[in-house]
Amino acid sequence: MTDWQGIVATHSGVVWRTVYRLLGNHQDAADCFQETFLSALDVARRQPVRSWPSLLTCLATARALDRMRRRMRDGARSADVAELKSVASPEPGPDQRAETAELVRMFRELVVRLPDRQAEVFCLRYGSEMSYREIAREMGLKTSDVGVLLHRARGRLRELMEPAEGPCGPEVMP
């Protein structure tokens, strides 16, 4: 049997951080947290797990992106107001707080507009800071494919950011 309790206890932190950062609220993060671990268990019964942290980070990212896309289709914002207000460095001034919050909002809203794989690779590389090799291994890609996906993701994000220079531009917001 898998030491399930041990795995959850050991890796709950990384999964929680991954899903919460993307989803930005407790309820969705809690649901996604459970989905991630159950997905991992499903994977583990079909194949050996080489790295639980990598697998869980990938799964958490994918599940969170799925949930964000559903939310976007439902017309909801990617994070609640209270959460956005809490995004701040330790001692920020009001303007800096607003700018940071805007960057986070932009990240969340634009990344879900990327094709699935590009979004996942981008979040794993720039959100979770996984290496090309780790991403490639967990997603079953070549390392070079990861580079291509990242390049395309950045290109697409640049295009999406262009009209989003103004806050909450209508071209960007759903």
């Binding site: 930005g24 947290f33 460095s89």
Partner: peptide, 12 residues
């Protein structure tokens, strides 16, 4: 900024 998002302790 995304990486630096403060994450509350969790999960509950």
């Amino acid at each position: 900024a995304f990486r630096d998002v403060p994450v509350p302790a969790g999960p509950p």
